[in-house]
Computed example of a mutant assay.
Amino acid sequence: LANDETIAVAGPVLRASDRLDEQTLVATAQTRGQEHLLAISGRKILTEAVTDVLVDRGDQAVVANTANNGGARFSDHGFSGLVTKASDDPALAMKLWSRPDSPREVLVRLFVEASDAVRNQLATDATRAEIVELAVAQASDQLQANARAHSVDFANAKAYVELLHASGQLHEAQLHGFAKEGSFDKVTLALSLMCKLPLDVVERAFARKQPDQLLVLAKALDLSWVTTTTLLFMQAHVSGSSRPQLDQHLASFSQLQPRAAQSTLQSYRTKQRAAE
């Protein structure tokens, strides 16, 4: 019945039968049409093998319903597919934000990409766009905080960086070393403490595909171009951008006055306090 070509026959079985094993569900999802996939996506429990097929073969409705299913589990491949499809689908991105099992790095990147898409949709209504931006930012901050709370690597990095800061040993040399290691947690924690900004703000600066905010932070801290370059390469990796255009960024960095950068940094702090 589950494999019947007629959805009126197969649908109820695919959605509700506890007798269907993973192999049967995978085989059906690989061979039947979107209506069958949509029925499968509504099951109480979906294993990684099943969601891999749903994400790969499913249309917008199937993928959205799968992402919204609290009983669905996703492999690395499944999450990768969801991120790709969510980049052009703000509604799907919002569904992913609400999933507690989304990887930490994915949450940061999804927030930036999806929030831009949401703002683009509401661009004609500045007041409404501002409200949406604030609401999305608050939701993202909570999700990022939840992700950090369950990360052992983050806890270890936090203890180490905070110890350096408390002992007066957190300087550019340490930041440069963290960036060369490629340690996202240590770099963002260090910049957060050195700039006196919330960690969420620094993480979003790395997740954005535009480096302007990162250049402001670097100039405000009077970082060298060598350290700034290392940070730019890390940002490109985190945001999924292409290789940074160093000549163009160097020109912007050189023209930016330290006093102006520090003033902008202060405005970031003020804006964050107002949002809080």
Rank of each mutant, 00 (worst) to 15 (best):
L189C: 06
L199T: 10
K196V: 13
S224I: 04
V216K: 02
D185V: 04
L231V: 07
G182V: 08
Q174D: 10
K209Q: 15
A218V: 08
K180W: 01
K186P: 07
L199Y: 12
L214Y: 03
K209I: 12
R204M: 10
E181I: 00
L223D: 01
F206V: 07
L197W: 07
A190Q: 02
K180I: 14
L232W: 03
V216W: 03
P198Q: 07
T188M: 02
T230W: 00
L217A: 14
V187N: 01
V201R: 14
V202K: 01
G182N: 08
L214P: 01
A205D: 13
L232V: 03
P198F: 10
L215N: 01
L193R: 12
A205R: 09
A173W: 03
C195D: 12
R208L: 09
D200W: 14
A179I: 00
L223N: 04
L199I: 13
P211C: 03
G182S: 10
F178D: 00
P198V: 08
T188R: 02
A190N: 05
T230H: 06
D222F: 06
L223K: 03
W225P: 04
A190I: 02
E172S: 09
L189P: 01
S192K: 02
L223Q: 07
L232I: 06
L191M: 14
K180S: 11
L221I: 07
D185R: 11
K186N: 11
R204N: 14
T229L: 07
D200P: 04
L214N: 06
D212T: 13
R208F: 06
F178H: 00
K209V: 11
G182K: 10
D222K: 11
D212K: 13
D212A: 13
L214T: 04
A207F: 13
K219D: 05
L223Y: 09
V201Q: 12
L232S: 05
K180L: 15
Q174V: 10
T230M: 02
Q213A: 15
L193C: 06
V187M: 01
S192V: 09
L197A: 12
T227S: 12
L232F: 03
K219M: 10
R208Y: 09
L175I: 00
V216M: 07
C195T: 15
L175K: 00
T228L: 04
L217T: 02
C195L: 15
A207I: 08
A218N: 07
C195G: 02
T229D: 10
A205E: 13
L217K: 06
L217E: 13
K209H: 11
L197P: 01
S224T: 15
K219I: 12
L175W: 00
K196Q: 15
K219H: 07
D200M: 10
F178Q: 00
K219F: 12
L191F: 05
M194F: 06
L215E: 02
T188L: 05
F184D: 12
S183Y: 04
L231Y: 06
G177H: 09
V216S: 05
A220Q: 06
T230Q: 11
S224L: 08
A190E: 02
T228P: 08
R204K: 15
Q210M: 06
L175C: 02
D222I: 05
W225Y: 11
A179F: 00
D222W: 06
L175S: 00
E172I: 07
K209L: 11
L197D: 05
A218E: 03
L221F: 08
